[in-house]
């Protein structure tokens, strides 16, 4: 029996080449190999995730959001209202606004799907669902997209990290952007190789990005970092579809990202002691929140 587990991008491409399958199918094979769920179970579970993602976008855009601290809540609506005027165009504006909407719901104690974390939960649903709705993709295709994204996340989690506390924001919104870039590329008919180029470029674009949450909360700058993460994913998918390749192969980029995370001062890894969290304004906000109630 062939072993479908993969821990590197190179392994994943080999499976795709030998079996003549897309990355999403290789991800399903690997999950089947764990012998916990059958194919129907995997599809049903992913469908539930997709439904919660869709609902979180709707909630973020249609209902009044106010984060626990009252710092954030309505920025996604503002961008959505501006989408026809935006230089980035209506489609990307909607994708970015949807990503922010989910993160606003997260900051307001709403229901989201961690992808790969709660702090970076906006990027994947924003990119996939808004793209899917604009281009009439079926639910099945979107589930495929989630499986493809999961494969990329698995490789990064295995070889580097997806936690801000160990790798900084590059590990959270960087990973989410790489996952979304790869998924989008498959949905647009790109090859597995093109998917990995898109993912590699997305990670490269934010290498070294620190995790510096104001007052230690998943609000500022996380919501806007989900916005740039979604735009990063779309840009990298566009580049890959245009035939642009990553000079540094995906696996080497992941290793570099892990090493950069290790070099990062702990003050810049979710402890809220450095970066934006250490600015005078952030410290004032932190003091105010401490005195809440």
């Amino acid at each position: 029996m062939i072993d479908y587990t993969f821990t590197t991008g190179e392994d994943l491409l080999t499976i795709c080449r030998v079996e003549q399958i897309p990355i999403s199918e290789a991800a399903i094979y690997a999950e089947l190999d764990r012998e916990e769920m059958d194919r129907q179970g995997i599809m049903d579970e992913m469908r539930k995730n997709l439904q919660v993602m869709r609902e979180s976008i709707r909630e973020g855009l249609e209902e009044q959001q106010m984060s626990i601290t009252g710092l954030m809540g309505e920025d996604a609506d503002k961008l959505m209202a501006f989408s026809e005027t935006a230089i980035m165009g209506p489609e990307l504006s909607r994708i970015v606004a949807a990503s922010m909407a989910v993160t606003e719901v997260n900051a307001s104690m709403g229901l989201i799907v961690a992808a790969p974390t709660a702090g970076a939960s906006g990027i994947l649903p924003g990119v996939l669902i808004e793209y899917g709705d604009t281009h009439d993709l079926s639910e099945k295709q979107l589930i495929r997209g989630l499986c493809n994204a999961g494969a990329i996340g698995l490789i990064i989690a295995h070889n580097a990290s997806i936690a801000g506390a160990s790798g900084g924001c590059q590990a959270e919104t960087g990973t989410a952007a790489a996952m979304a870039a790869s998924a989008l590329t498959e949905l647009r008919g790109g090859t597995p190789e093109m998917c990995l180029h898109a993912a590699a470029i997305a990670l490269k674009n934010v290498m070294g990005l620190v995790c510096d949450p104001v007052a230690g909360l998943v609000e500022c700058p996380c919501i806007k970092r989900n916005a740039i993460g979604a735009a990063n994913a779309v840009l990298c998918s566009d580049m890959a579809m245009a035939g642009i390749e990553s000079v540094i192969p995906f696996d080497e980029v992941v290793t570099a990202m892990r090493n950069v995370g290790r070099m990062m001062n702990p003050d810049l890894r979710e402890t809220a002691r450095g970066g934006l969290a250490a600015t005078p304004t952030a410290l004032k906000i932190a003091e105010k929140i401490k005195n809440l109630e």
């Binding site: 916990e36 579970e45 626990i68 989201i112 992808a115 709660a118 702090g119 999961g150 996340g153 295995h158």
Partner: peptide, 23 residues
């Protein structure tokens, strides 16, 4: 590989933080 696809796409949870809220 021991982790599941659903460790990456999931869990479905009330935000804002898996450690500070879901945990």
């Amino acid at each position: 590989m021991s982790i599941s696809l659903f460790d990456i796409i999931g869990p479905r949870m009330i935000g804002p933080s898996s450690s500070h809220t879901a945990g």
